[in-house]
């Protein structure tokens, strides 16, 4: 990758304690523009906790989280609320799918536009031209994203009625609607069959290459991680034990050791 540009996400010495338990211990990690990065590690290594700290769901016990949004100045995310982090341009999906079940597919994506639009109660009641324009923009942008994701056929279906794989993709579409520069995907391939996983892989590559959105993903499907990632970060017991390209990680003895006994993943 281009080492001259500033990293989009710059996490320094992030630490998270739950009572006596240290879930994250001095984790530093960078995600650069145009890359798909993977965060891997055995179960309980602290990967989701890392996401939760970055997105403001947990308040980290120590360390700094910075973002360098393209064309904007560096911001520190510590202490920001979840919705503020999203407004900065950092969107995420969830490990256990968290769609708005009783809303339609389109509405799920439209929620993503919330932080990029302004109209309030008065606008909603009066439906002035400004509000109508904004509403039209929301619908069209959301539909366009669903087309890219391949869900344009079910815009009016309730989210709860979608097949599992489609629900995972809808979560990605919803995240894309927030105009992020970086998407955090929490096990996007979990529960997918090999064919769906292949399609997902293509989709993630396209998000990165065509939309210019960098991706940081947590994934247990090593085949996918190895084929998609530009860079891999490995966590074990809350500590970062390695960073490198696919080839470097595959040969790293520390990583291999950490994964021994965890080989049942596939």
């Amino acid at each position: 990758m281009n080492a001259v540009t500033e990293p989009l996400l710059d996490v320094q010495a992030l630490t998270m304690n739950f009572g006596g338990l240290t879930a994250l211990d001095q984790v530093s990690l960078q995600v650069h523009p145009g890359e798909v990065a993977a965060l891997i590690g055995p179960n309980g290594a602290g990967k989701t906790t890392f996401f939760n700290c970055v997105t403001g769901i947990y308040r980290p016990s120590g360390g700094d989280i910075f973002v360098n949004p393209p064309g904007k100045r560096r911001r520190r995310l510590n202490g920001m609320k979840t919705h503020q982090v999203t407004a900065q341009g950092l969107a995420r999906t969830f490990q256990n799918i968290r769609l708005f079940q009783k809303m339609t597919v389109l509405e799920n994506v439209m929620i993503g536009r919330h932080c990029r639009t302004r109209s309030g109660v008065l606008g909603a009641v009066l439906r002035d031209p400004q509000t109508r324009r904004e509403e039209r923009e929301i619908v069209e942008r959301s539909y366009a994203i669903l087309e890219k994701i391949g869900l344009a056929g079910e815009v009016n279906e309730l989210a709860m009625n979608l097949p599992y794989g489609d629900q995972r993709r809808l979560e990605i579409a919803r995240a894309m609607a927030t105009d992020p520069f970086l998407i955090l995907l929490d096990e996007p391939a979990a529960g997918m069959n090999p064919r769906e996983t292949d399609a997902l892989e293509v989709l993630i590559r396209r998000i990165c290459d065509e939309e210019g959105i960098a991706v940081l993903l947590i994934e247990h499907d090593m085949r996918m991680v190895m084929s998609i990632s530009n860079r891999i970060h490995v966590l074990d017991y809350g500590k970062k034990i390695a960073t490198g390209t696919v080839a470097e990680i595959c040969e790293n003895p520390v990583v291999i050791k950490a994964y021994l006994g965890e080989e049942t993943e596939e």
């Binding site: 979840t82 919705h83 999203t86």
Partner: peptide, 15 residues
Amino acid sequence: VALREDETACEAMGV
């Protein structure tokens, strides 16, 4: 409605 369905996800979507 999104808030009713899932508050955490709703906040993560920027609401």
